[in-house]
Nucleic acid binder design. Sequence first.
DNA 1: TAAAGTGACTTGCATTATACAAGCATATGC
DNA 2: GCATATGCTTGTATAATGCAAGTCACTTTA
Lengths: 118, 118
Amino acid sequence: MADYDERNHERSCCPIACALDHLGDKWTLLIIRDLLLGKKRYQEFLESPEQIATNILANRLKKLEAAGLLTQQVYQKKPIRYEYVLTAKGEDLRMVLQTLAEWGRTYYPGTKVFTAHV
Amino acid sequence: MADYDERNHERSCCPIACALDHLGDKWTLLIIRDLLLGKKRYQEFLESPEQIATNILANRLKKLEAAGLLTQQVYQKKPIRYEYVLTAKGEDLRMVLQTLAEWGRTYYPGTKVFTAHV
DNA sequence: TAAAGTGACTTGCATTATACAAGCATATGC
DNA sequence: GCATATGCTTGTATAATGCAAGTCACTTTA
């Protein structure tokens, strides 16, 4: 499984660098956003307007679980299917995403925050 | 210059997605961090503990300028040399970085926020 | 005055990640 | 049975990243 390895990256002892080791790409935080908005299932993530590719989604879900940001929960056996739910660590990114969304709204006019459908 | 192009990415009208189009990688936010801490010059960025490669640094500085997050300012002619300073748009990421640093400090114990040396 | 730095990059190349399309396994509905 | 759906995996092409080395225009030191 060369596609997903779990080393300790830790480029430095800076909390921002550590955070970016796990979150620093174009897709990971969008999945967290979806989870914070109440999405739970593979298909729901695929339906987001950014159109993530299936292999990247599968890869990020694994990495997020390995990083302790979410857990899988079985919602059906035969065939086994999972829902993805945020851990406290993942939930605590809500403020980060809110602040980032605020910045984005300010500097990219025309963008709109999606609201939770819960 | 295939290494640095300036299209409008805009994967969606989500402010988070727009923000990540510009900031979503392992290095960009670390450069912003350094700028917020008062660093201004190429060599200073290279000295950060994460050890960014020179080609990536040069590339990111160009992209950040193209994205309107920083500007170059000449501090010496012969040979011409620049300092990099944040625009208001860049400065306004301070809250984002602070929130992210806070999260990182919480979940990656042992990390320490660098403080401005200004 | 020649040699050795220094700062700010650029270039080349190998490795890794991303994107896109297609395929597969295990179901359910008809 | 056969078509359809969900949740992935695989293959392959393109792009990004990482590392080492080189360049260019000066400045400093011997």
